[in-house]
Amino acid sequence: MADLQHTHELTYEGDRVVKRYQESKPGAAEREWRALTLLAEHAPGLAPEPVAFEGGAVTMSRIPGVPLRGLFARARHVAAMAEALAELHAAVPPAVLRGVPVRPWQQEAIADWIKKRCAAWQPREPLADRAVKEGQRWLESWSPGGQGLREAFGAGDGNLANFLWDGSRVRIVDFEDSGRSDVAFEVAELAEHVSMWVDGEVEIARRFELSPQEERRTRECRKAHALVWFFLLSHEHPRNPPGTFQRQVERVLTTLGA
């Protein structure tokens, strides 16, 4: 949910990066530091190395690579991204993961956020209004995923810019919204992120081996994340091409009808 907000400042100091968080993002620095520390122990090389944590600033190593957003993502890039995510999801041992707080903006928080945005929606144009009404109707029946879901360590931000390609593998940055999650929820969040389709469709969900229960939960969670982006994009943002919101309206209607 932080994608359209300025939450931190980056300073580059040689082979190190200092990430200083705004006070408006409480807990973000702690989550970033926890993630880097866990991954340094359980998945070395996948993310920056933690160096220092002081106040609201996290110092980490600077890793090489080109962000996948802005790069024409070919099959090898997407495959490497899925491989990195699978490693991330499974990196933290279950006994350790149970002690990790649930990531921000999990199902309950998202459902509440969408309900409030639906209630505050002002009539705009027929297709967008229809998307809101159908979203409200679907939300009333949205329930937890049930049994058979794999817990996972989630990065919490599916922005394509957070995946760096170094020519042979993908590494991951930005863990301010990280925490305990489940594979299906993380795949859905990633698949519906605006960066995954606004510059050209990047199909990632099929890259993961999901159980029937996880496939069902992924489909449902994609509806929720599509609605989140509907509201986030309801005011055109200069980062995205003109017409992005209208494309999102159509995406929501298609997803809800799936």
Rank of each mutant, 00 (worst) to 15 (best):
V183W: 08
E192R: 11
E203F: 10
E176F: 06
R169L: 09
E201D: 14
A191Q: 11
D174R: 01
V194K: 04
V198S: 00
I204L: 15
H193A: 05
R206E: 15
V170L: 04
S178C: 13
H193L: 07
H193W: 00
E176L: 08
V202Y: 04
R180P: 06
V170I: 13
V187N: 00
A205L: 11
E186I: 05
S181C: 11
F208Y: 12
V198H: 01
W197L: 08
V183I: 15
A191S: 15
E189P: 02
D182Y: 12
G200L: 12
L190W: 09
E203S: 14
A184F: 10
E192M: 15
M196D: 01
R206V: 09
R171V: 01
I172C: 08
V198I: 13
D199F: 11
R169W: 08
E201H: 13
A184K: 01
I172A: 05
S195V: 01
S195N: 03
S181T: 11
V202M: 11
S195P: 00
L190H: 07
G200C: 11
A191H: 06
E176T: 08
V183S: 02
E192H: 03
L210W: 10
S195I: 03
E209T: 14
F185S: 10
E209H: 13
E176I: 09
E186Y: 04
R207L: 14
F185V: 00
R207E: 15
V198L: 03
A191W: 00
E203R: 15
F175H: 04
I172V: 14
D182W: 05
E192T: 12
A205H: 11
R207I: 00
S178F: 03
E192L: 12
V198Y: 06
E209A: 15
S181I: 07
S178P: 08
S181Q: 02
A205N: 08
M196H: 08
V202W: 07
D177S: 13
I172Q: 01
V202R: 11
V187E: 04
S178H: 02
L190C: 03
D182S: 06
F185M: 09
V198N: 06
L190M: 13
G200R: 10
V194N: 03
